[in-house]
Each structure stands twice: as C-alpha cells, then as structure tokens.
Amino acid sequence: MELELVDISKTYNNNVCAIKSLNYTLDKSAICGIVGDSGCGKTTLLRIIAGLETPDNGIIKVNNNIVYDGWINVAPEKRQIGMVFQGNALFPHMTVKKNITFGLEKESLNSVNKLIELFSLEDKINRYPHELSSGQMQRVAIARTLAVQPKILLLDEPFSNLDLIAKSKLRTEIKKIAKILSITVFIVTHDIFDALDICDEIIFINNGELIETCNSSDVKNLSDIKLKSYLKNMTDQAKRFISIIE
C-alpha cells in the first residue's frame, strides 16, 4: 500500500474543524487529485501527510510503515515525502541550480541533469527565481522536490498562478514525469478539470470530510447528487463556451 490514512482528525486552536475522521487508502502508485472548495481542508490534509502539521488523532502509513500514530511521529525531513507549496516557495537567494540541488548531499549535477532536461530548464540554471516566469518557477519547484527522490509527491494548487498555455504544458509534464519515475502524486486543486485531465483517481473533500472517491474515467458514476449537478453545470458552461468560439 502506497499511503494509508486512518481516522485522521485535526482541529485548530480556534475550534475550526479542519479535517474530520478521514479515512483513505491508495494501493498502487497513481496520480491522485484532491478536489474541493477553498478552505475545505485540502491543504491541511497535505500538510498532515507531509508531517508539517500534527493531526489530533489517527494513523498515517507510507509504504506500510507507520509515520504517525500519536506515539511515533516521523519528522518531515525523514518522511521522504516531497511537497510543492502554493506559490512555489523557491529559495530567493539561490540560483535555479542551487535550488534544485539543495536537498542533495553533494552537488551531484548528474542525477539532476535528467530532471533539468525533463523540465527544459537547461538555459535557466544560473538564474535567480525572481528572473523566471511563474510557469518556470513552478517547474523549478517540482524539479527541486523530485531531486531528492521522494516516495510521494504532494502538489498544492500547482496550476493556480499560470496562464492557460503554461498550465497545459505543466499538466503534460507532470503526467510524463509521474510515468517515468513511477511515483505517486497528490495534486490539490479547486479546479475539477485539472483533476479530470491528469489524475487517475479523484478525492472530493467538503468541510474537512471525504465525501467521495472515484476513478477519473468514471466520474459519471458519482453517487453524490450535489457533486453531480455541479459537474454537469460546469460541463454545460464549457460546452456553451466552446460553441461560441467555434
């Protein structure tokens, strides 16, 4: 089992319930989308998986090893989980190359050359983050995370700041890389179409509760009526839009 979440709960100090008894299991490596409105607890869930937040309750297993159960609490630096934050969080005082090799023991460029190539960053390696476009920054951030070969990659709203072209380019790259590295990827997004496009599996979260899990190929079999009507509504809008431009 890649990842197992058992009965995860998290309440913040101000009694806002972020996650309510969440259970989820992922058997094999896949790209998995976490979809929901903003403020529904998606980011908190990622932070809990990464070890940046401690849940109040529950068990987390990665590759069948417990990383959290209340007694055991593996520190984030030892969980081998990579995370790309919303707004990328690149180190502003380091070049692209320094950023990407930051997590490595020695500056062994060879192992990251492939990544740099995959993300076509060859001519940018000596630039500083503020000299890059948001698409390029996002790709550097993903490359930096992948450089340390994590078991699971967590992406928090990776497409939020990108224009349409950069977005579709990044989607393709993520798909390609997940396949090449055969790594499990969790993508948090509020945009169902992003999820539908690249994810193998989609988790729907509302108010900190997991309401539905489904395979992206059979969305039509969704049981939740509200979700279904929402999806239908969105699709209709998209269809109308397409008919206008055509």
Binding site: A50, L52, A75, P76, E77, K78, R79, Q80, I81, G82, M83, F85, Q86, G87, A89, L90, F91, H93, F102, G103, A141, R144, T145, A147, V148, P150
Partner: peptide
C-alpha cells in the same frame, strides 16, 4: 513565508541546516 523553511525540511534538511543555509541568508 513559512513554506520556504518547510520546503527545506521536506527536502530532508534539519532545522539547523535550514536556519544557516536558508533563513539566516
């Protein structure tokens, strides 16, 4: 931004390493 040191932790670096290489600079 807190995500900057957190990125470093997730890249396997200790708190002190992050302090000296990221936060202090």
């Amino acid at each position: 931004s807190p995500s900057i040191p957190e990125s470093s932790y997730l890249l396997g670096k200790s708190k002190f390493f992050t302090l000296f290489k990221v936060e202090i600079p």
